[in-house]
Design a protein around this nucleic acid. Sequence first.
DNA 1: GACGTTAGTGACACCGGGTGCCACGGGCAA
DNA 2: TTGCCCGTGGCACCCGGTGTCACTAACGTC
Lengths: 204, 204
Amino acid sequence: MTVLADPRGDTRGDTRLRIEQAALDLFTRQGFDDVTTDQVADAAGISRRTYFRHFATKADAVWGDFAAHVDRLGQLLAATAGEQPVLNSICAAYVQVNDYADADLPMLRQRLRLILGEPALQAHSQVRYNGVDQVVAEHVARRTGAAPGSLVPRLVATSTRAAATTAFEVWLADGRLPLAQSLHDAFEELAGGFPTLRVAGRVG
Amino acid sequence: MTVLADPRGDTRGDTRLRIEQAALDLFTRQGFDDVTTDQVADAAGISRRTYFRHFATKADAVWGDFAAHVDRLGQLLAATAGEQPVLNSICAAYVQVNDYADADLPMLRQRLRLILGEPALQAHSQVRYNGVDQVVAEHVARRTGAAPGSLVPRLVATSTRAAATTAFEVWLADGRLPLAQSLHDAFEELAGGFPTLRVAGRVG
DNA sequence: GACGTTAGTGACACCGGGTGCCACGGGCAA
DNA sequence: TTGCCCGTGGCACCCGGTGTCACTAACGTC
């Protein structure tokens, strides 16, 4: 329902953005589960059927163009020189991919708060993470000569992604230190075999 | 439909098991998405409505009593002495929780193949993993004195769980070496900061 | 200017997961 | 027998997601 806000001809690529913004706003205000796709479509000035032509699922509107994100991560990894340790190259790629301008940080926070906080979106995220893990595992396999499906490439991929996710969570909860710093901290712990644990452990 | 297989009075706790078995068989044969809950219910000799009284979601039948699993993990962690390094205690707890009798291994493989292989079940698994991560993070927090929500406890929890999941995947794909060995290998890599990478890396 | 093509859209019907409600029936205690 | 409880089935409903058809505006061609 509701008349098109802009009857002129520039609404083509704009629609997707309008949907994203409407979805983020509604999900943030009311919670993901308490908003129907009808409401999102209505807020964006389109029909429900049209919503599902722009996004495959209700959750997808929160993710923006994540595939491009993963592609860029893969390109950054492929372009790394062989001199630096593998973990450093992965950390650097994660930092670069997530290097947002200050103006974009509020929207990033909004997206992440939903993705990391709403159970339904957490569930959905697992499938996205698989794409990331695969790209990273292939990078590790190239650099080490191991098969991409063997233990070390897989393990490096999943645990570095766990590190990145955790860094995001901490950054989101605290917000004092910049995201890049949080990522570096997490990777440093991971790469060093958790030095913090060794300091505190081995008490007896 | 279909008459109750056992009209005597011992079908109370038995129903849940029948549903699980029917679900595992159907999902394995036809794929999770190509089986409806009607079919599962029918195969188990109950109505769809009754299925959803035993399991909250279509996916839950695959997981068995996972909450008990997590509880036991938490108890094992709480009972560990403070002498051994934290990571070792987590590894030991994972190994113990997943110490199945040989007779139970086929069903475990069946469950894991579905959980790790079917996208819809992978998505569902994220919510389960949150419970595991929380238990592990609390353990690390107790042992280190850090806040459970701070970086290191969170990171240890997510990356050890990533290690465990990866070990499961490798065990499932290969099947040569025992699960406990696969878990130990993964934790050793993780705890050592990925020694394998250091051997192969730093070529230049 | 009439034409066919194409992309974006809306309306409708349908499927399947999940829930609330009511009604039935069998076991069990008073 | 009476009353209760619990597991169950049936039904209607909500919502996410899809297939299909019809409409319309924009565009190039003749």
